[in-house]
Design a binder for these strands. Structure first.
Length: 439
RNA sequence: UCCGCAGUAGCUCAGUGGUAGAGCAAUCGGCUGUUAACCGAUCGGUCGCAAGUUCGAGUCUUGCCUGCGGAGCCA
């Protein structure tokens, strides 16, 4: 028997295999799948860093090790020792010529077999489903998007600021909030950190947040989660147009980073990368009025000025562009109280939604914020909001108010779009859905 | 909440009123380059739950439960 984990054989990860070609190494791994014949066996190994095939040849390892390899069960954990071989037949470029296998823990009757499964079954086994090649690839892309986000904002001089998750008042009156108790008081789970980020921008200039948000909406579509993650930048002295430029640069940077650093993952997902390659700033912009005219020309007669766009409308608009498209200057009545009116037209606000291509819907909502104290107070009253609860927010306009803008990007929709997965439930490790709180 | 579809073996499904089926998984055997490997055999069932129609219900009717797809709302 060969030795395992001893001093003479280096323990490496699969991702590092290319640096050890021709050398004998040990890999801690799980058995994703296996195939075998009378005299050769193929072990599909994964260790989180990647996937590699182990080849066990009976005439090389002898009867005992060969029989052991043949009897391994799916998802058993192993220390596999072997020689790293460059091999053009492997999509990864390398194989492991196995010299020995040590079982750490045997897995009996792993539920997710290498065949097709339904959504309910896979979601019930989400804790195991994450191990599959496709889900692994989506999680790696999610991680790359997060990494590229920090990189982008750090390079641009932003500071990361963390708004609270437990809040006493509703940032927006529209969405349903999760209610909880804060000792004897009522409290709500945050559905946006924006108002706090505005305060932070007055302290630190350019800031961004990255955290979970909660919407108790009975939404049941491929674009909705109950708990999802948002990136919310807020910038002092940035006006409407400055805001759009940050957004298109940020989204472009994220897409290009994934293209550069996640090639294997995109390939494994079968993503058509040609549709991502030209995602470069600037992005097209159309106003709400222009979008409405376009929709009427397309034959949508179910919508008139002052109505919000539905999913079919957004998709129709997105389909006529190769890039994400900004829809700007929505009617004031459709948008939250804090958005700055267009100085040339009081009935629309300086806002923009960014609609992703290929039917993934709105990935960003943003606007210039009202910085005039009297106007903001008036809007709060118009929306029947409690002035006491918003006292601190109004004070931002009393002490050195400046023009400022910001936006919120929905991480899961962005992951789903870039990965090309159909549903946002696959773009977060443990999705919280209308009828699912477990696992 | 509304509209539509579905629930049969561990998984994916076929079975439209007359003996409960297939592929995969599992178990055993065969196979020296497999890529959801393949070939042979074995094992595997409260047909979502309840009531009804019928000589007879997986199949038809009603109610309920669960899930999926979409809508509204939103990122």
């Amino acid at each position: 028997m060969p030795h395992f984990g001893g001093n003479s054989i280096m323990k490496i990860t699969i991702a590092e295999a290319g640096n050890h070609a021709g050398k004998e190494v040990t890999i801690g791994a799980w058995l994703a799948n296996k195939r075998s014949s009378g005299k050769i066996a193929f072990l599909q190994l994964r260790d989180g860093s990647g996937f590699i095939q182990g080849v066990v040849v009976k005439s090389d390892v002898g009867e005992e090790i060969f029989q052991q390899a043949k009897s391994l069960t799916q998802e058993s954990s192993l220390y596999v020792t072997g020689v790293v071989q460059e091999d053009s037949r492997s999509p990864f470029g390398y194989e492991l010529s196995v010299t020995g296998v040590k079982v750490i823990a045997e897995a009996v009757d792993y539920p997710i077999t290498p065949k097709e499964h339904g959504t309910e079954f896979l979601m019930d086994h989400r804790h195991l489903w994450l191990r599959s090649r496709k889900q692994h690839a989506v999680m790696k892309i999610r991680n790359e998007i997060i990494r590229a986000t920090y990189e982008f904002f750090n390079e641009k001089g932003f500071s990361k600021v963390d708004p609270p998750i437990l809040t006493g008042s509703a940032p927006e009156g529209t969405s349903e909030l999760f209610h909880t108790k804060y000792f004897d008081e009522d409290a709500y789970l945050s559905q946006s950190g924006q108002l706090y980020m505005e305060a932070a921008a007055m302290a630190l200039g350019k800031v961004f947040s990255f955290g979970p948000t909660f919407r108790a909406e009975k939404s049941k579509t491929r674009r909705h989660l109950i708990e999802f993650w948002m990136i919310e930048p807020e910038m002092a002295f940035y006006e409407f147009e400055d805001n759009l430029e940050v957004q298109e640069q940020y989204v472009s940077h994220v897409v290009q980073s994934v293209l550069k650093n996640c090639q294997l993952e995109l390939e494994r997902l079968g993503r058509d990368t040609s549709k991502l390659e030209h995602i470069q700033a600037p992005f097209p912009r159309i106003t709400y009025d222009e979008a409405l005219k376009f929709l009427h020309e397309k034959g949508f007669d179910d919508i008139q000025w002052g109505d919000d766009f539905g999913a079919p409308h957004e998709t129709a608009i997105a389909e006529s562009y190769q890039k994400p498209v900004f829809i700007t200057h929505y009617p004031t009545s459709l948008k939250p109280f804090y958005m700055q009116p267009d100085p040339e037209r009081g009935d629309v606000v300086l806002c923009a939604d960014l609609i992703a291509p290929e039917g993934y819907g709105e990935i960003i909502g943003g606007s210039e914020r009202i910085h005039d104290y009297e106007l903001l107070k008036q809007r709060l009253e118009e929306h029947n909001l409690d002035l006491d609860a918003y006292k601190w927010y109004l004070e931002l306009r009393q002490y050195g108010s400046v023009p400022h803008s910001g936006f919120g990007l929905g991480l899961e929709r962005t992951v789903a779009w870039i990965s090309g997965v159909e549903h946002v439930r696959e773009s977060i490790p443990f999705p919280r859905l209308l009828n699912r709180l477990y696992p």
